[in-house]
Simulated assay, not measured.
Amino acid sequence: MVEFSVPSSSMSSTLHTPSEVFHWLASIFIGITMCIIVFQVTGVISLLCFNDYGRLGKKERLEWKNRGFSTFHAIVVAFASLYLLLLSDQFKDGSHGKSIINSTSTLSDRVLGISLGYFLSDLGMILWNFPALGGWEYVLHHGLSMFSIFLSLMSGEGQIYILMVLFTESTTPFVNLRWYLDVAGLKSSKLYMFNGIMLFTGWLVARIFLFIIFFFHMYLHFDEVKQIFDLGFYSLLLVPPVLALMNLFWFWKIAKGLAKTVSKARHSS
């Protein structure tokens, strides 16, 4: 059987069969296809169910549908990551007779592949319509995410850390709902304030506290982390701190926005 390998100087020397490569590519294709389908379905449902959607401009409709598939992806990967990290035995010490840093499974590979397909789709939308759908920070975030997922998928190393970061996508539905309510002119509604509170709380837990756990886990397992191939090891040292700083910056903006919303609600009452 033909096998594929990559240079050990840049990645693990693990051999990959054509079947494995095919399933990775299939997962990425499924992720892209999922985004296209949800993008189109979001537009149809929104046109039928939301009067405000028909009054939006072309760019706002595009972003509306884009946020539809980003919400769908966030829900899928958040539940999948939670299952793999806490409910399955994949990353329990010694459960498979090897380091949890090197632990992989068919399901975790599929999740990473689908997520890579999503980030490719979303980044394509951002770049094609820049700056309508975001700015440099979104491009940086997506670029770093894609790079890290690709390395982990190809090497089979560090998937536990990729899944921890993917779980932070659980805050995305609240971010998108805030945008929807804003566009619909409902910034003064109770739902907007409640969503702001949920976003603040969720961000604090999933993107601040979770990163503290992330770094503490790396510290406890650093002897194993050092065994990761060179590019993966240095990426693991550099990429998460960058993402953590971006999360802190966004958290500061979320906190300011929530304080402003609560202040307005108090004055109006």
Rank of each mutant, 00 (worst) to 15 (best):
Q159G: 01
I213D: 13
S105Y: 10
G158I: 03
M164H: 08
T172G: 01
Y161Q: 04
F174Q: 07
K98R: 13
E157Y: 12
Y118R: 00
D109P: 04
H96D: 13
G143D: 01
F200Q: 12
G113T: 03
T168G: 14
K98L: 13
N176T: 04
G117V: 00
D122E: 10
T104F: 07
I149P: 01
L191C: 10
I160T: 05
N129P: 00
L107D: 10
D182N: 12
T168H: 04
E157D: 15
M125E: 13
S115R: 00
H141F: 04
F147Y: 15
W136G: 10
F150V: 15
V205Y: 09
D122W: 03
M146G: 14
N102T: 14
G185Q: 04
M125N: 14
S99N: 01
S95L: 10
S145R: 00
G202L: 07
S170H: 02
N129F: 10
V165Q: 11
E157C: 10
G135R: 12
D93G: 06
S152W: 04
L140T: 13
V111Y: 00
G94H: 09
L163M: 09
G143H: 03
L186D: 05
I101M: 12
S88T: 07
G158P: 06
S88H: 09
S145M: 13
N195M: 03
L163T: 06
W128A: 14
V139P: 03
H96K: 13
M218H: 02
M125A: 14
A184C: 09
S189H: 04
M154D: 02
S189Y: 02
V165D: 10
M146L: 15
T104Q: 11
A132F: 01
L123A: 11
H221D: 02
G185R: 06
L120F: 13
V111G: 03
T171F: 00
F200L: 13
I160E: 04
Q159V: 12
M154Y: 05
L133S: 10
I160V: 14
V205R: 04
P173T: 03
T106E: 15
S152M: 13
F216H: 08
F119E: 00
N102R: 15
L163H: 15
M193R: 12
S152H: 09
N129S: 15
L181F: 11
L86C: 09
M198W: 05
